[in-house]
Amino acid sequence: MSDGADRASTVGGDERFEQVLDRILDGVFALDTEWRFTYLNEWARELVHDAVGEADAAEELVGRTLWEVFPDARGTTFEERYRKAMRTGESVTFDEYYAPLDVWFEVRAYPSATGLTVCFRDVTERRRRREELEFRETALREMYDVVADRESSFEARVDDLLRIGQRVFGTDYATLSRVQTRR
């Protein structure tokens, strides 16, 4: 932060602007060129509270560095991409997992001459749904390959299908109780 006037304009300035940012469901925070917080919207403040158990108000974080508040972010993709944005002056977009919260974030960071503005959202559920769909698709493809394999015996195909079922359902064993044929 260069002086007190900058802080006043970002933290205690235009309340309407802050209200607009607080209504956004994405987290938004701003950093100066020394990596100190100059602004956090409501969602970002809640995340900080959840992540480190402190700071309910933006004023409590303003002036503290990102690396002081989130020491676990050092050496991660977050640090690498934020530093790249500041160094090159080009925006960066990435998805990254943040282990302390067990959350995947979609992050967009916008550099300027005065610092970095970061917008982020929790995409954990979206990623889990996609992974689940990919898992199911893989299982269905494997099942199709087993059923379509004309070189294997019926018994071998049943055994292969049961092994796939064990993996998909997470069971220790699988059985087939009856095979009924049409007459």
Rank of each mutant, 00 (worst) to 15 (best):
T88Y: 02
R64L: 09
A174Y: 02
L21Y: 02
Y39V: 04
V103D: 03
E90M: 12
R16K: 06
E79G: 04
D95V: 13
V62C: 01
P111M: 11
E125W: 02
D14R: 13
G63V: 15
L47D: 00
R74Y: 02
I164V: 15
L47Q: 03
W35Y: 10
E79P: 01
F120L: 15
D95S: 10
A109I: 05
A109E: 05
A58K: 00
A113G: 07
R126S: 14
Q180G: 13
M143K: 05
G27Q: 14
D72W: 00
L61E: 11
A55M: 07
S2T: 15
T114Y: 03
E131A: 08
M1H: 12
E90Y: 12
T10C: 10
T88M: 02
T38L: 04
G13Y: 07
L162Q: 09
E59N: 07
V48R: 00
R64M: 14
A156I: 13
T93F: 04
T138N: 11
E151T: 07
R141N: 10
V103P: 03
R129A: 08
Y82I: 13
L176N: 14
S2P: 02
E60R: 02
Y39A: 10
V146A: 09
P71I: 07
R136D: 08
E60N: 10
R178S: 01
E106P: 00
I164Y: 15
V11P: 00
T77V: 15
T65E: 05
D50N: 06
D172S: 08
D32S: 07
S9G: 06
T88L: 00
Y173F: 08
E125Q: 12
V179W: 01
A113M: 13
R157L: 05
R108N: 11
A58C: 09
T181Y: 04
R150F: 10
T124V: 05
W67I: 14
D6A: 06
R178K: 03
L133N: 08
E34D: 14
E54Y: 00
